[in-house]
């Protein structure tokens, strides 16, 4: 719940006519801006958001930082596309707008959308970045569309110059099946620096994901935290158990090699029988209170890990694990 004043810099250059983000880059960007405005104004009632466009005849401030969401959304309509992006002016004017914010307690943040090539030198961007950092302004960059010609490198340098304790981020959103705004939801721009971010962002993320993808085990931790936790704990336990078993197996294998050195028995026999006999007593010694179920499980795990220990089935380890996870999941769901 950071108290923030945010200026959002919109890219309205000619490149925004490109249709690689449905329906056009500009429309996709508008949706993302709307979403960010909503998230910012709802995460704290005193947050303010302002907008400016960076391309065209000149940089134009559409609305100075305000908490009135209607005012922000209204000025998004009827924007003209044209010209080339003037990133440096845009960022500097955004900083000026933030400097004259009403409430000095607000942190300052600039969010820049860049979907066209940056004409400025990397050096210049770094100088601007330093200046922002000096004036304690954070900067988020959303890069989409144009990734060639060192664009990413330039923007990366800009964000790196501003970054102070990880308060500034850069995200690259390539064109894909999910909308630009949806792709943004899981980025640090929405989730914030530390604690799970705003409730709005989380809720919006849940809606966007539709409970199908994006989360571990296909369960949204925000909707059912207990189930998600149970699944995660189960996963961890299983992993720990497998690791322990694998370690034991490795130890035994080493032991066997020694034995093999002494008694020249054929390999297959030693692989299967002595392991079980040698390991089980050790396990029993450690945990006398093992129930029958657990013993059975342990035995199963051991057998599994013995499979892993064989040199030719290393790749099998992962699939085994996912199988087990799937089992656990079913159990939890049931």
């Amino acid at each position: 719940m950071v108290l923030e004043a945010t200026m959002i810099c919109i890219d309205n250059s000619e490149w925004m006519r490109n249709g690689d983000y449905a329906p056009t880059r500009f429309q996709a960007q508008s949706d993302a801006v709307n979403l960010i405005c909503g998230a910012k104004t709802q995460s704290n009632p005193e947050n303010t958001v302002g907008l400016l466009t960076m391309a065209g005849k000149r940089v134009r401030v559409l609305v100075t930082p305000t908490s009135d969401l209607g005012k922000i959304l209204a000025c998004m309509h009827g924007l003209e596309i044209g010209g080339v992006l003037n990133l440096v002016s845009g960022v500097q004017i955004a900083q000026l707008a933030l400097k004259h914010r009403q409430n000095k307690n607000q942190q300052q943040r600039i969010i820049v959308f860049v979907g066209s090539p940056t004409k400025h030198e990397k050096k210049l961007l770094e100088i601007i970045g330093k200046k922002l950092k000096k004036n304690s302004v954070a900067l988020d960059v959303v890069e989409f569309g144009e990734f060639d010609d060192g664009n990413s490198e330039k923007l990366g340098a800009l964000v790196a110059a501003v970054n102070n304790n990880g308060n500034s981020h850069i995200v690259n959103i390539p064109p894909g099946p999910s909308a630009l705004s949806d792709a943004l939801l899981t980025t640090p721009i929405f989730t914030g620096d530390g604690d799970g971010g705003s409730g709005f962002a989380a809720a919006a993320a849940a809606v966007a994901a539709g409970g199908t993808t994006g989360f571990d085990f296909g369960v949204d931790p925000n909707i059912d935290p207990e189930l998600a936790l149970a699944l995660r704990v189960s996963m961890e336990e299983e992993r720990a158990r497998q690791e322990a078993a694998a370690k034991k197996a490795a130890d035994d294998a080493a032991k066997q090699e020694k034995e093999m050195g002494q008694t020249s028995v054929t390999q297959d026999v030693t692989m299967s029988e002595p392991v079980v006999t040698s390991v089980m007593p050790a396990a029993d010694d450690k945990k006398h209170d093992l129930t029958d179920d657990e013993t059975a499980l342990l035995r199963q795990a051991l057998a599994m890990s013995m499979d892993d220990a064989r040199p030719d089935s290393e790749a099998g380890a992962d699939t085994d694990m996912s199988d087990v996870v799937a089992e656990d999941q079913d159990l939890s769901f049931g």
Binding site: K104, N105, K133, K134, N135, S136, N164, N165
Partner: peptide, 11 residues
């Protein structure tokens, strides 16, 4: 204190 502001301070 609520109005005290310092620019270019290290966190």
């Amino acid at each position: 204190w609520r109005g005290v502001e310092c620019l270019n301070q290290k966190s």
